[in-house]
Design a protein around this nucleic acid. Structure first.
Lengths: 233, 233
DNA sequence: TTCGTCTATCGAACAACGTACGATACGCTA
DNA sequence: TAGCGTATCGTACGTTGTTCGATAGACGAA
């Protein structure tokens, strides 16, 4: 039945893709509706082609995600390289970390895949290099340098993973906004026994309506302060 | 055909579960073979029952993972509460963070689910409270306190997420051990252009065969040093 | 006992997913 | 025109989370 439509002449055109278009549509899909929306079928639909075609460009979904991640990290890297070198390496590190974090805030799905496989993600490796290079002017051992950069990346990723969790669908639908969602948790916390949860009560107002960027900045500041101490600058 | 076996009299006994046994087998499955091995069918097999029975205890896989996580966090919490209060709150915080981290090292799957939903994960909330309470004796604002505890949890989770990634199956099978796996990456890095990747070359020997615990401890130390500075103690 | 009700279990089916396979269209060179 | 490498696609397979309706067992009321 349906086969008759495929006779040729009148039949549906074959789609024509490219690595670029595949990655772009993958990223668009991830941006619009999160990781759970990225399926080979949905992606094929967007590309106007068949499901199996995608496998010509990518061997698995894992590789698709790695490549999509590296694709957008490439953009972040370009922005990062446009950043001028300042006098203070630690200030530079902060600026870079904030930039990376902002990119992940814009695309929360990044957090889960960033830096997962530097074979495929060559831009991630370049970004790691870029970060680390700023530590070369600090008075540290190679050991300390390695750990310092890992710590900074850890702060970024750690904060980002928190936010990378797909919010409940009520929030995704827009039926409930983020502040109200946070507020519900805050309310539940407020109803806890103050004797048993003194700390939670102390900070519940801070938690309610808090900004993820502030939280990240504070964590980063602590790490950088520690690093500054270690480097003696 | 197969239906004849189910006549009764000679038929298979009905299984009898409990929330405890469901969670225990879930944890056992996760411990033995990782998140990808946790399927309702595999779990049902272990429990000696049917697949649908699990849904009497849990509404979804997500809830199963949340409850399983909270189940083991309960144990960690007990260990944490056995820890004596020292003179220095920051030393106490370090001890607690290390304890939590060690628990996640033992069960890498924990990292991905810990603290995801404090509705279900009441033990995680208690653990958060326990951590935060140590900051009450520091000279900080509520704002700073909130961020400090978030930062510490962030360091733990951030380090743990790195390690929580399921290793390639060659490592899981035991065909390749972790050091050799790290070594391959190190080798690939060593073959990069030293002009283009000076930092990667500087730290490749540190990366090769590095201990995740060291890496975590260093990151934690930086954060705690920053916190100590902030609190002025 | 007999009935009904509440708890718990289970087989079977469903839709959606990642993936494999074989067929085939298209553009090029010989 | 024939052949070949590139690229596309319909289709099917096995596995997954989840749903549904049936039903077994325990226990108190009649």
């Amino acid at each position: 039945m349906a086969r008759l439509q495929n006779r040729s002449g009148e039949g549906r055109r074959r789609a024509s893709h490219s690595m670029e278009s595949v990655l772009n549509e993958t990223v668009a899909l991830l941006d619009e509706a999160g990781v759970s929306a990225l399926t080979f079928r949905a992606l094929a639909l967007r590309l106007g082609g068949g499901v199996a075609s995608i496998y010509w460009y990518v061997a698995s979904k894992e590789e698709l995600l790695d490549r999509a991640t590296d694709h957008v990290i490439g953009g972040v890297l370009a922005d990062l390289e446009a950043l001028p070198d300042g006098d203070d390496p630690i200030d530079d590190l902060r600026a870079m970390a904030v930039m990376l974090f902002d990119a992940i805030v814009e695309r929360p799905w990044l957090g889960a895949y960033f830096m997962r496989n530097t074979d495929v993600q060559s831009n991630s490796l370049r970004l790691y290099e870029r970060l680390g290079r700023r530590t070369l002017r600090l008075d540290l051992t190679a050991h300390q340098r390695f750990h310092a950069v890992s710590a900074i990346v850890g702060v970024v990723v750690g904060s980002a993973v928190d936010m990378g969790q797909e919010p409940p669908k009520e929030v995704l639908d827009g039926a409930v906004d983020r502040d109200e969602y946070l507020g519900r948790y805050a309310q539940a916390w407020r109803e806890l026994d103050p004797e048993e949860f003194p700390f939670v009560h102390e900070i519940v107002d801070e938690f309610d309506g808090h900004d993820d960027r502030d939280q990240f900045r504070s964590a980063l500041e602590l790490t950088l302060a520690g690093l500054r101490l270690q480097a003696g600058v």
